[in-house]
Amino acid sequence: MGKAGTETSPTQPLVPRDDRVQGQVWNMIRFEQVSKVYDRRSRPALHDVTVEFERGEFVFLVGASGSGKSTFIRLMLREERASSGTVYVVGRNVARLPSWRVPRLRRGIGVVFQDFRLLPNKTVYANVAFAMQVLGKGRAQIRQTVPEVLGTVGLEGKERRMPHELSGGEQQRVAIARAIVNRPEILLADEPTGNLDPETSLGIMAVLDKINQNGTTVVMATHDDDIVNQMRRRVVELHTGGIVRDEAGGGYRTEVEA
């Protein structure tokens, strides 16, 4: 990883490292020297990554394809376990969670993908309600919450539409509604605007921003530089599995590089 090392620009963690006592974790998400190797022969997907996200932060995870963004997200969801190092989500070491506790971890994390992943044979309402039904939520609660959340993402009055009747932007809003309907503390978005045109993407960003304003920590992996430049939020840049930049209020490229 010599290449990544030479490229490393000075990183500026938001909270000084010394403020924390080992074992007392108050961050929403913390990666401690995390490496992930999928295949011994190829280079690691993540290499010695240490980073922290605070409660209520909005963080862009940027980098080219293959830079480790998706692995980063999968580690938080415990779709994967780190090869070395530790991932903490809300103070819990996710690798140490017994498997029966993993669903509870995931209940605290909403996820949105580039390809929406809606159920094609269910209405908008049913798609969002599904996320509550599978957690065993009561019918009355579902009836009350789903319209509220659809309102939050700007889909009032479209409850009875089927996914194929919606535009891409609207489908992504349904996916976001589904991700937040159970009030997770964290929202992970993996290239949420990847399939959308720039104007529609801005609408999605407005929704994500609103959700962030309501107190949800948002981590968004993207390589959409326009959006990153416009939002001026914290930017964590990955390159070949290592963090090369961590900048508050940054753009897609560092000012130096640009």
């Binding site: 969801l77 029966w100 669903p103 995931r106 159920l119 094609p120 599904f130 599978v134 589904r178």
Partner: peptide, 17 residues
């Protein structure tokens, strides 16, 4: 698999899935 994928994602229990 779509349904079960979403169930996993939103944290449905093993039993539920």
């Amino acid at each position: 698999r779509r349904e079960t994928g979403i169930m996993r994602l939103v944290g449905a229990s093993k039993t539920m899935i």
